[in-house]
Design a binder for these strands. Structure first.
Lengths: 224, 224
DNA sequence: GAATTTATAGCACTGGATGCCAAAATGGAA
DNA sequence: TTCCATTTTGGCATCCAGTGCTATAAATTC
């Protein structure tokens, strides 16, 4: 085996062992034979071609030329590979919420921040649609998504708690956070299923509905 | 082995093979050696005592005196045992929503129906708290919960769709349903964590918040 | 008692996930 | 160059959830 690939080794998010060589530092030790991105790409390709359940971790590992054991050093689980760099987006959302001016209404900040974190380039949108399609249709991924969405909720709940002066565990922040998650999920699901090319627009509409308290007369004009 | 239990065999929700003998019919063939309820009880007891991950299916099966293979005839998965008779409650919620008068505001119906399906007797509350505690803290169960909650959302989305004359897949119904789920989950989580004995009250408060669109001035008086 | 029906036990097998250790690859120092 | 520290990898061996298959046990009906 021992496939000699000769990678550039200058990747930003490098090897599995977290502490990739910092900005100025020089990389020591053996270089990773692949990257998280490559693994995710290979996995996604197999999933969308032959199905999630029909793809084994061994196949994914083989596709990127590493052993099964090594796959689990890049991603904790098979389902994690579908989520790619979700953690980074979570940080971005948290930053946006934190940096918003205090005089802007809470639900406005929330809506605009979620919209902002979901502006993707045309190139990324196709892949994202495949991702979201899988996440919302394959039972195993639907299940795993709950864990990731919980992290999303935590970020929002902390923001709301700070705004209204309460604990993130209290009913208010929890309700706002989980309802906001619901709105975002609805927007994503509708965007992924229909041919609506306007993801941010769907998010916008969903959050505006949420802010009206679902007054029945506003609910009708959903789809232009 | 072959534990001879001598069950009454008149249980309502009987054996694993679905079609339990109807009202007047006589039970044919070998009688189930245990019941879904007994399995769930044994499982819950082990989970709360030694932890979910630390309990194997073999142990649960042994506790009720059946083989490992038989456990999976009563419940599809280890996590399903925690949910008990959730399906029945779903039907009840659907019925309530369907039977509500058309002139009652949609969000009112929703709030009152969810509250009604969550009125439990004092005896059931302790067990329910253990259940919800597990469901919202053990990652494996958090994950699996998403699948069950999706069914809940479907019921609500169908109701909303009928009310506003849209498809259950449209943005409106989806947003309302998922936001409502969020409110319900927040209420449950707060009730399970704190010592609030008033589950229905938490649900009430959460849904009232939802109906206000989270106007910031209403969010402060969360905890009496 | 024989046939039929239903539930069970037990076995084999797949596949995800984890712990452990030896081997490979790389940079730096002696 | 040679040795050493560092990091990633491969290949077990192992555990456990979940499934398909088959033989057997218990119960009713004829």
């Amino acid at each position: 085996m021992t496939k000699v690939t000769g990678e550039p080794a200058n990747e930003v998010a490098a090897g599995p062992n977290e502490v990739a060589a910092g900005p100025g530092e020089v990389a020591r030790g053996r270089r990773p034979s692949t990257s998280r991105e490559d693994v995710a790409r290979a996995a996604l390709e197999l999933f969308s071609r032959q199905g999630y359940d029909e793809t084994t971790v061994d196949e994914i590992a083989a596709a990127v030329g590493v052993s099964r054991r090594t796959f689990f050093r890049y991603y904790e689980s098979k389902s994690d590979a579908v989520w790619g760099e979700f953690d980074a987006e979570l940080v971005r959302l948290g930053d946006r919420l934190h940096e918003a001016p205090d005089d802007e209404p809470m639900m406005e900040v929330l809506r605009r921040s979620v919209m902002a974190t979901n502006r993707f380039g045309a190139g990324e949108l196709d892949e994202l649609r495949i991702r979201m399609g899988l996440i919302s249709s394959v039972p195993d991924l639907v299940a795993h998504s709950a864990v990731r969405y919980e992290e999303w909720c935590d970020v929002v709940a902390r923001f709301v708690a700070r705004r209204i002066g309460a604990s993130p565990d209290d009913l208010g922040p929890q309700t706002v956070a989980r309802a906001a998650l619901g709105a975002a999920m609805a927007a994503f699901a509708c965007w992924a299923r229909h041919d609506s090319d306007d993801l941010v627009g769907e998010v916008d509409r969903a959050f505006r509905l949420l802010a009206t308290g679902f007054a029945e007369d506003r609910l009708h004009g959903g789809r232009a």
